[in-house]
């Protein structure tokens, strides 16, 4: 079974805003490029916990934060480190895109991730009930 990507409404909204704010920087593409690299490793059957790279940050409860570093593609300006927060669900092989932010929003982004996971557990619980 192949992994697929699903985005939350929060991610969709924030990613649109992110692209608008960073219109000419190419940051969005760098983030998605690293996301693509991470997804490829998942498709090869590697457990999410075992995929390690400079652009992957292991956050609490299995959440991963993917930043834009490493690419040879040049970006304009001196961008802040941005992070794309994802949750790889190994049971369903779905990589959830939860939210996106930068260093300033890190605290609230992690909080959003926790809310997503809580909500997700409740939904799974009611599915099995």
């Amino acid at each position: 079974m192949q992994w697929c990507i699903e985005q939350t409404d929060l991610f969709a909204r924030k990613f649109k805003q992110f692209r608008k704010k960073n219109k000419h920087s190419g940051l969005d593409k760098l983030l998605l490029n690293n996301l693509d690299t991470y997804l490829k490793a998942l498709q090869f059957g590697t457990s999410p916990q075992k995929i390690n790279a400079g652009f992957i940050h292991h956050e609490p409860n299995g959440v991963k934060a993917i930043d834009q570093k490493g690419s040879r593609k040049k970006v304009s300006g001196t961008p802040k480190e941005c992070r794309l927060y994802v949750f790889p669900d190994s049971d369903s092989k779905v990589l959830y895109l939860i939210t996106i932010g930068d260093k300033n929003s890190q605290k609230s982004d992690i909080k959003d991730c926790c809310s997503f996971l809580d909500e997700s557990r409740k939904t799974k619980g009611s599915d099995h009930g």
Binding site: C4, I5, E6, D9, F15, K16, R19, N33, D36, V94
Partner: peptide, 19 residues
């Protein structure tokens, strides 16, 4: 949790929604 979502095969697929 959000209602039933579109599943994208990859980032290229996802990006079509935005660009």
């Amino acid at each position: 949790m959000d209602s039933k979502k579109t599943a994208y095969r990859g980032v290229k697929d996802l990006f079509k929604e935005y660009a």
